[in-house]
């Protein structure tokens, strides 16, 4: 108690943050009770139990949304996840540090652009009318494709734009891991006559495996997120059915159609699964590599 009194001022330092979290995180969580209520503009909301969850799970459209979320996350893990690792290994082979810094600086740029800007750039590049990609296709005598409204390509556009945006930046953690490898390992490998390729495969790669596992597991925790801002800005009526994910669904039925209870029920479902995923991945990561989410 004496300590509390002595450091009273420190609690004042934390207070604004706690008030902020209370208003913008805990009040919305409390407000989630609406998923179990019928929203009424006038008068008290009526408790209806699990009604909206039943509606949600009896609605086939929701399974489509769930499937889209899962397939987009899977595609990103399979195709996007390895790129920063390969990039970090490649950057590590650039011997002149000024050259390496140049490559890194440029590759980091897209991470700092908003998805509004990136979508604007991709829409212009993929345009059927004089867009860069279609110009290349035409040079090779292919028919132009309207990528933006073609539902067969739209998920791949998500994967590619994700790589474009984050491959450079996501390599940062791996580069840091590579830099902390003990130089003596390479020296003794060189004495044994290992080539650069062998050093990469047998020293660098195994040494960053713990980091790879950590990042992989932590990514799994956000499996149901699948990138709201990206989908939201690249989506249009023609491609909606292929890339509508839980977050965009929640936004659409909640804020556009005003069906609060149903949309909060969907959001709560995602939040609960996300909570379980993040907690379990955090503890797994901590157990394997000693490094969790916090």
């Amino acid at each position: 108690m004496k300590l509390v009194k002595k450091h009273f001022i420190l609690y004042l330092f934390i207070l604004p943050t706690l008030i902020f979290l209370f208003i913008f995180h805990y009040l919305p969580i409390y407000e989630s009770k609406l998923a179990f209520q019928k929203y009424k503009i006038i008068g008290e909301n009526e408790w209806v139990g699990l009604k909206y969850f039943k509606i949600l799970f009896s609605y086939s459209g929701f399974y489509n949304v769930l499937w889209n979320t899962i397939i987009i996350s899977m595609m990103k893990i399979v195709f996007t996840f390895p790129i920063p690792i390969i990039l970090a290994l490649t950057l590590n082979e650039v011997r002149k540090s000024s050259h390496r810094k140049f490559f890194q600086s440029i590759l980091y740029i897209p991470h700092f652009l908003s998805w509004v800007i990136i979508s604007g750039i991709f829409i212009s590049m993929l345009s059927i009318n004089n867009g860069a990609v279609n110009n290349v296709l035409q040079m090779m005598d292919f028919d132009p494709i309207n990528f933006l409204t073609n539902s067969n390509y739209v998920r791949w556009i998500l994967v590619i734009s994700e790589i474009w945006r984050s491959a450079g930046w996501d390599s940062v953690l791996y580069i840091a891991a590579i830099f902390s490898i003990n130089q003596e390992l390479y020296d003794s490998a060189k004495i044994d006559g290992a080539t650069r390729w062998q050093q990469t495969i047998f020293i660098t790669l195994p040494m960053i495996v713990p980091m790879i596992i950590t990042v992989f597991i932590l990514n799994l925790g956000f499996f149901l997120s699948a990138g709201f801002d990206q989908v939201f800005n690249l989506m249009n009526a023609a491609t909606l059915s292929k890339i509508d994910i839980i977050d965009t669904y929640v936004y659409r039925i909640g804020l556009l159609k005003g069906d609060f209870s149903l949309s909060i029920a969907a959001g709560l479902f995602k939040g609960l699964i996300g909570f379980i995923l993040i907690m379990s991945t955090h503890f797994i990561a901590k157990k394997i590599s000693g490094r969790g989410l916090w």
Partner: peptide, 18 residues
């Protein structure tokens, strides 16, 4: 209390209502 807000995300709709 602080870290819990990282792992449980209320939906945008409830934040909007608040």
């Amino acid at each position: 209390i602080i870290i819990f807000t990282m792992v449980f995300e209320p939906s945008i709709v409830t934040e909007f209502l608040v």
